Amino acid sequence: MSTSLHGLRIAVTGASGFCGAVVANAAAAAGATVVCLGRRPGPIGEHRYWDATRTPPDLTGTDLVLHLAAAVGDPPPGRAAEEAFHAVNVDGTARLIEAAGTRTLIWVSSASVYASPTTPEPIREEHPLGGMTAYGRTKAAGERLAAAAGAVILRPRAVYGPGDPHLLPRLRRAVRGGRVLLPGPDIPLSLTAVENLADACLAARNWTPGAYNVADPPVYRRDEIVSAACGVPVQHLPITLARAAARTSATIARLTRRAPTLSWYALEQLTNPVVLDTSRAAAQGWTPTRTFHDFLDSPGADRP
């Protein structure tokens, strides 16, 4: 990355998280003075405590805001989860926008805001918003506030990288008897290296306000990626059997108030061919360079 940020004071929300920490480090490496906002300190720079569910953040003395703080995950269904996610992803966004004022705001969203695709064509930013879970729905609602405030909105899909606490651990938990059981058939999909997301975050300060898909250059094949990540072959399950398992898992989750072992969201992610069209970001001069195979070959991959 050749972006120079010397002289800028950049606020990074959610800097203690997986994506936020990478972005904060990248901003500092590019010469920026970094202010990390969140309940826990970030990996570098000044820490200012911020609970997104309670108060506006203190952005005093900052020039640019990179907003990565979010309630994330695949929670059990129900009103409690919806309200908890809304408090951070919607109400927290409103508080951030109030504090940001006229500062440039880069709001990191997710491809989870999109409604399920009905055609095999790559998804463009005009695709209808929906969201299958509390996460997707509240990120979409937060996006609407950010768009109205003139923010640049980034929509990555399935972010991975060194220290990833979500994608790879979830895939590796699906290994059974020396293979990974996946609802078939194989599908194409987009993934986003955390380094590519960080590059987009730092470059986007010069982009026209609006929404941008952010993903790796290649379109991947699900089975190839999962097999490489887990070190075992993939075996296909009938989708009808997987749907029955998801219904059972959802019932157990409602009774126990725990995250489902196999959720409808996870099933949708594994069976829908979600490929992002990134031409809008490319037109702004953004060129992603990292791929999943680069990651697997890196020391931080924890390759099986």
Rank of each mutant, 00 (worst) to 15 (best):
P122L: 04
T119N: 08
L171Q: 11
V152W: 14
V152Q: 15
G163C: 08
R173P: 11
H166T: 04
R173T: 13
A140S: 07
L171W: 14
D164F: 02
A146I: 11
M132L: 14
R137Y: 01
V159T: 01
V108L: 04
L105V: 15
L129Q: 11
A149N: 15
G136W: 03
P117A: 09
R172W: 15
A147F: 12
Y135H: 01
A146F: 14
Y160N: 03
L168Q: 11
R176A: 10
S116M: 08
E125R: 11
Y114T: 03
R157E: 01
W107A: 11
I123D: 06
L105D: 12
W107G: 12
E126H: 08
A134H: 01
A140V: 07
A158K: 05
K139A: 02
L154T: 02
T133A: 12
P162C: 07
T133C: 10
I106N: 00
R155D: 06
G131P: 11
V175S: 14
S112N: 13
P117H: 10
L145R: 13
A141P: 04
A111L: 02
V108K: 00
T138N: 06
R172F: 10
S112C: 13
W107I: 06
A111N: 03
V108H: 00
L145G: 11
H166V: 04
E126N: 05
R170H: 11
L168E: 12
A134N: 02
V175M: 09
I123R: 08
A174G: 13
A140M: 10
A149M: 14
V113H: 12
L168Y: 06
V159K: 01
A111C: 02
R170G: 10
I153V: 15
G136L: 03
R170Y: 09
R124G: 13
R172N: 14
H166M: 09
V108G: 00
A111T: 01
R157S: 02
R157I: 00
I153P: 11
L105W: 15
A147R: 15
A146W: 11
Y114E: 07
G136K: 08
G131M: 13
V175R: 14
V108F: 00
P122F: 00
R176L: 06
P156S: 00
P165D: 06
R170E: 12
V113K: 13
G136T: 05
A151Q: 14
A151S: 15
R137F: 00
T138Y: 00
Y114M: 06
I153Y: 06
E125Y: 06
L154A: 07
